[in-house]
Every structure is written in C-alpha cells, then in structure tokens.
Design a protein around this nucleic acid. Structure first.
Lengths: 213, 213
DNA sequence: GGCATAAGTGAATGATCGTTCATTGTCGAT
DNA sequence: ATCGACAATGAACGATCATTCACTTATGCC
C-alpha cells in the first residue's frame, strides 16, 4: 500500500519535475541569449532532456515561453501577496504605515526579490509584444494589491503630516521610484547597492512624510 | 559646376537615405514583432528595398540592429545635450535650479521624447544581452551629463532649503522616478497621462524642496 | 559615346529553426 | 509473464533563416 502510493507519487513528481526543469532551463537560456536567442536546441542542451520533451509537456516553444512568463508572474505576485497579507488589516496609525513602507523598501531590494535573474527576465518579457499584450508584464504597477497597499499607507501618512498634494500621486511616485531603481539595477548590476537603494527610498519618504522616516 | 555639385550631393544623399530607410524600417519591425521576430524578409517588406541591401550597407542583420541601437542612443543623447546646454553655465540661484527641473520634467514626458516608438525600442534594446553588454542601453542614468545636471540642481536646492539628506540621493531619486514613469508608460500606454506624470514629479520635487514648486 | 567604378538586385545556398511521429522504454494491472 | 497505457526519444522533415555572389543598372570621368 505504502509502496504503491509512493511509486504513484514518484511518477507524478517526475512528470512535474520535467516541466520544472524545462521552465528553469528556458529561464537560463533567456538570461544568457535573450528571447531572440532562445532555441529548442539550446533549451535541450541546458536541460539535458530530449528534444521532443518540449512539445510533449508544452505544445510549442512559444507556449513554453509564455508559460514561463506566467509562472514567474505568479511567483512574484505570491511573494508580494505574503508580504501584504501579513500587514494589519487596516493600517490605522501613521507609525504602522511608515513601518509598512520601510518593510516594503527592504523587501523590494532583497536578494530574494531583486536579483539578476528576476530583473533580466522581467525586462526580457516586457520587451516581447506578444507577451506584453497578454498582460504578463510581470511587475504590474497599476491595479495590484501592492499598489493599493501603498496607496493606503500614503493616505494615512498624508493625513498625519498634513502633506499637501494628492496621496494617490505620492503613492504613484513611490511605486515609480521602486521601478526606476529596478531599472538601475538591471542596467548596472555591478554598481548597484541595495543599501543605497533603500536609503534613496527612505530619503524620499522622509521628504513626503517628515518625522516618520 | 552647380549641376555637378548637385548630382554629387544627390548621390551622397541617396546612399545615406537608404541607410536611413533601413534603420527606420528595422525600428518599425522591432516595434511590431520584437527583436526576436525581426527578420530580413520583414525588414525588406517594410522598407521596400531589395534583399541584398541590408548586407550591402550594414554587414549583417545583427550589425544593423546594433547600429540602430547606437543611432537611437545618439538621438536621445543629442536631445538632452541641447536641453542641458541651453542652461545657464552655472545654476547659481535656487529659482534657476527649480526652473531647470521643471523644464526637465516637461521635456522628459513630451511627445517628442517619450512616445510608443521610443519607449518600446528602449525596452527592446535593454532586453538584449548583447546590446546591453555593448553599453547601448540607451537611457543611461549613471554618468551622463543629464545626471550631472540634475545633481547640480539638487545641490543648489538642498542648500537653499536646508534639506537634510544627501543631494546625490535626491538626484538619484528624481532620475529613478523619471525612469519608473517611463516604465509605466511602456506598460500601460493607454492609461498613461503626460500631465499626471509631470504633476507626480512636481509633487515629489515640492516635497524635497518646499517653496520652490 | 565609351569605359571604369560603384550601387543595387534577387535567385541560390547551406545552416538552423520548430515540429512531427514511428519507435523504444517504463510501469502497473492482470 | 504478458499486456495496455503512457512517457520519452531523436532521426527526419519542410519551412524559414541570414548570407552570398554573379549579374544588371546607374553614375562619374575622359
């Protein structure tokens, strides 16, 4: 009984494993050669799997790339989901809001979230018209829970500080600042400093909300 | 004499014209199909020129794309060069500095500088490892005259406002904000508002330098 | 007009692409 | 042990790719 279940499980795992391996290998190839240089032969070489595997698990190469884009979108969203969900239901005090933004900065520039792989792939997918049209540009600034979260924090802090200016615009500024710093990392990974990026965000937040940063 | 000169000139123009037409056509193809979908056949179709033309004027397709990337970098830098050069030699007064930054915001989100073509191409080139390695990521935030210019303005304004915090970080924040808003435009060209983008920048500048925006 | 030089052309070529499918290997049930 | 079902393989295929080059056309000079 136990062995039957185990073997059955093993079978299932193996199948999923091959999918995973292919996605992983494809990501590596895109990293090295860009989407334009991503071929079945290279994926085969990288993954060590047989040629027909790609069309067996995914129906086509294009579909494989599309599923990779979706996969990473999911991963990214999940990461942020777990971040935003552990926040207090309602950010009531400005101190809470400030702490949440600080944590956001730290998370957004952590090795786990921002690294050469995630950055390069993000930019690779964003550049493909077909993928972008499918809504897979995998950092969506607009209409995300993350954006809503930042908006709420800014609202509370603006009220507390008597900050003049639309809180929505302040939220958008902070979101855009994060994106811009991601771009900087992507363009100059060698010169980029995570600590400095966080400090820049903090400096900006301090300007918007004096006394809380 | 005049006719000789004219024909000679016409010849030269014609040759340069074909180069220009090819670059333009290639840009259009990348816009529609991405770098991965850019083929000689499509460029030929788009340009209306003969097939061999590409290898005659440029040595290869890859070289054509690389020269296009360089060409657009040049164009972009020239645009900013003319912007920064018309500034007063030294931005001495904070009023001057503020006016310069305002003008910067207006320019960066003007139709001439930021449009679907320029944005899409920027992101397309940034995604190609080979092109990025060649230093053609054509909005260079670091080490440009533009960055220096912003840095100087921030220095003057920080002094005037007694703003606490490194002026260098403030400058970086503003540059990154611009980049982030470009990204927003690229991801959601339909929902983007140029006026709103400028307003977001102004709101941020007001926070950094109270009384000047 | 005649000649030399350079620009322009596009059919032909070989390489490489993504995809297919007949075949082989594996595992669980009988 | 045998068989059915399904995963895995990779040689073979036609399509498409970038590039070449023998050839035609245009231009400048005498």
């Amino acid at each position: 009984m136990a062995s039957a279940e185990e073997t059955k499980k093993k079978r299932k795992v193996d199948k999923g494993l091959h999918r995973e391996v292919l996605l992983e290998a494809t990501a590596s190839v895109i990293l090295k050669h860009g989407v334009s240089g991503t071929t079945i032969s290279r994926i085969q070489e990288e993954s060590g799997l047989s040629r027909g595997m790609i069309n067996l698990h995914f129906q086509s190469k294009d579909n494989l790339i599309r599923e990779l884009a979706i996969h990473m979108t999911q991963e990214y969203n999940d990461a942020w989901q777990s971040f935003t969900s552990q926040a207090p239901q309602a950010v009531s005090t400005p101190e809470d809001a400030a702490a949440r933004l600080q944590a956001l900065f730290a998370t957004d520039f952590s090795e786990a979230v921002l690294n050469e792989r995630s950055a390069r792939l993000t930019f690779a997918f964003r550049a493909e018209p077909d993928l972008q049209a499918l809504g897979t540009g995998y950092i969506e600034t607009r209409g995300t829970e993350l954006h809503d979260h930042v908006r709420r924090c800014c609202q509370v802090l603006c009220d507390a500080c008597g900050t003049q200016g639309d809180p929505e615009k302040v939220a958008m500024a902070i979101m855009s600042l994060l994106e811009g710093l991601w771009t900087d990392f992507h363009a100059h990974p060698g010169e980029f400093s995570r600590e400095n990026a966080v400090e820049i965000c903090r400096t900006t937040a301090r300007a918007f909300f004096p006394g809380y940063f």
